[in-house]
């Protein structure tokens, strides 16, 4: 990961170049992101960290095509997101991006398996059965496939969410506080799965989190404060991240 990137850098699954995001107008304007430039290489597990209000979720939303930037460019792979209309963005999200939210990830009317294959069903595509089996076994959901979300624990629901995010074999997976609602054991399970999917399955994961323990699972961490990138860390551990966060909040 680097903070100086050019258009020539092709190893990045996602890139933001001089991205700003401003909410509101005039005196009430809030600069959530201020000319942020950052790249996320493929095949890596990156954490975006920062205190609340730092703009980390906003950055993720912009990278994922869920939000529109005020200025600057966002690239997923080689695609400039600003050139896409809503239909194309929707297709992009469906085929190239995986999402894991903090909670309410699943449709209550569908079984676990149907939730996992939902993006594929929406695209009208048949799943790559071998890949799907691998993903399901990675998260250990085989015995639970016919259950509805109300019959699953919080941890199991998040596992289904992880499986769904991976089911389309996306270019990149965005996770927004995926362990926020879970107890420490289930949380650890999820983070292990995410790690595995990068190491064993070759996925790219960008995770927004405020939890130093979670960051410890990542290959690298980026730190935001007040809409700016203020630091980066290679091979983060829970202690180092905690120390860094403390200085940020000071």
């Amino acid at each position: 990961m680097s903070l100086d990137i050019t258009a020539a850098d092709v190893n990045h699954a996602a890139r933001a170049v001089k991205v700003s995001k401003i909410y509101g107008e005039g005196d009430a304007a809030v600069r959530a992101l201020d000319s942020v430039t950052v790249g996320f290489p493929s095949g890596r597990f990156t954490a975006i960290m920062g205190p609340s209000g730092s703009g980390k979720s906003t950055l993720m939303h912009c990278l994922a095509g869920l939000d529109v930037v005020t200025s600057g460019n966002v690239y997923l792979g080689q695609t400039d997101l600003s050139s896409l209309d809503d239909k194309a963005l929707t297709q992009l999200r469906r085929d190239q991006v995986g999402f894991i939210f903090q909670a309410y990830n699943l449709l209550p009317t569908l079984t676990a398996l149907e939730n996992i294959t939902l993006p594929l069903d929406l695209a009208g595509r048949k799943p790559d059965q071998a890949w799907l089996d691998q993903v399901i076994d990675t998260v250990g959901l085989r015995p639970r496939l016919t259950h509805r979300p109300t019959e699953l624990s919080g941890g199991q629901q998040q596992r289904v969410a992880v499986a769904r995010a991976l089911a389309t074999r996306p270019q990149i997976v965005f996770a927004d506080e995926p362990t926020g609602n879970l107890d420490s054991r289930s949380g650890a399970e999820i983070l292990t799965f995410l790690e595995k999917s990068v190491d064993e399955l070759g996925q790219t994961i960008v995770m927004v989190t405020h939890d130093p323990t979670a960051a410890g699972y990542a290959d690298a961490a980026v730190f935001l404060a007040d809409g700016h990138i203020v630091d980066e860390m290679e091979g983060p551990t829970a202690e180092r991240v905690l120390d860094r966060l403390k200085t940020l909040e000071a």
Binding site: L66, D86, K87, T90, Q91, R93, R94, D95, F99, F101, Y104, N105, L106, L107, P108, L118, P119, L122, A123, R164
Partner: peptide
């Protein structure tokens, strides 16, 4: 609303 947002996030088009 939430559920619909989720569907749009994972790639359900407006027409769909």
């Amino acid at each position: 609303t939430r559920e619909l947002g989720l569907l749009r996030a994972v790639g359900m088009g407006r027409r769909q």
